[in-house]
């Protein structure tokens, strides 16, 4: 489903982060991307999430060449297909959980009538219904990440990309969040997780490591 070919990404003219790298991810896979700090994991994820662009190379999604799209079409593509989960949750402050989930629906121009049901469904799926009317600033880290995942899921994207989603969580919460990702993955959503925690990487079907600008498949066992 995701096909990245000969991806070159250079910063500051000589910092080659991705050096004609290739990556291929099938629909329904749960994939981990590992690597040392500063190696380019976030950069790769951003390229997959279409918030960043490569300097050279091609990006295919469901056999469509996204790298040819114009800005507006890319934004549309992103809204429809990609859900983001961040290490620091990135909920919109001062709003309630419900309002945070309503925002992506609004951007996706979902009719008002349908929204309530969609929000309730996703909250149920992640067992955070009881937080519905809480201000997101008053949630614990684990709760915030659940809400963030709910937000990523709400427009039913094909892919969820998560940059160190458990980086700020304790063990118990990490286990719970990973359980959630497994459940979501079982229902058919492709999941790409950036992590430096090998235990988490080990739970994924495939593990890729970035070394010297190349993407190499790893077998952790």
């Amino acid at each position: 489903m995701i096909e990245i070919r000969n991806c070159l990404k250079v910063y500051d003219q000589n910092n080659i982060v991705l050096d004609y790298a290739n990556l291929s991810i099938k629909a329904g896979e749960m994939v981990a991307i590992i690597g040392e700090s500063g190696v380019g994991k976030s950069t790769l994820l951003n390229i997959i999430g279409t918030v960043d662009k490569m300097d050279e190379g091609k990006y295919f999604f469901d056999n469509k060449e996204i790298s040819k799209y114009k800005n507006k079409a890319i934004a549309q593509f992103r809204t429809k297909n990609i859900g983001f989960v961040f290490q620091l949750y990135y909920l919109i402050p001062q709003l309630t959980v419900y309002e945070n989930l309503d925002i992506p629906l609004n951007y996706a121009k979902i009719p008002l009538k349908l929204r309530d049901e969609m929000i309730l469904n996703v909250l149920k799926q992640l067992s955070v219904e009881h937080l519905k009317n809480k201000n997101v600033d008053n949630l614990s880290g684990g709760e915030k990440q659940r809400v963030a995942i709910a937000r990523a899921l709400i427009n039913q994207p094909k892919v969820i990309i998560a940059d160190e989603p458990t980086g700020n969580l304790d063990n118990k919460n990490t286990i719970n969040i990973m359980k959630l990702f497994h459940n979501i993955n079982k229902e058919g959503t492709t999941i790409i997780i950036v992590t430096h925690d090998l235990e988490i990487a080990g739970q994924c079907q495939k593990v890729y490591e970035i070394i010297n600008g190349k993407i190499i498949e790893r077998n952790l066992n």
């Binding site: 934004a75 990135y90 951007y107 990523a152």
Partner: peptide, 13 residues
């Protein structure tokens, strides 16, 4: 920050 988040969750320009 929020502007970036909003764009990531679907806002266009």
């Amino acid at each position: 920050h929020e502007i970036g988040i909003r764009q990531a969750i679907g806002a266009n320009k």
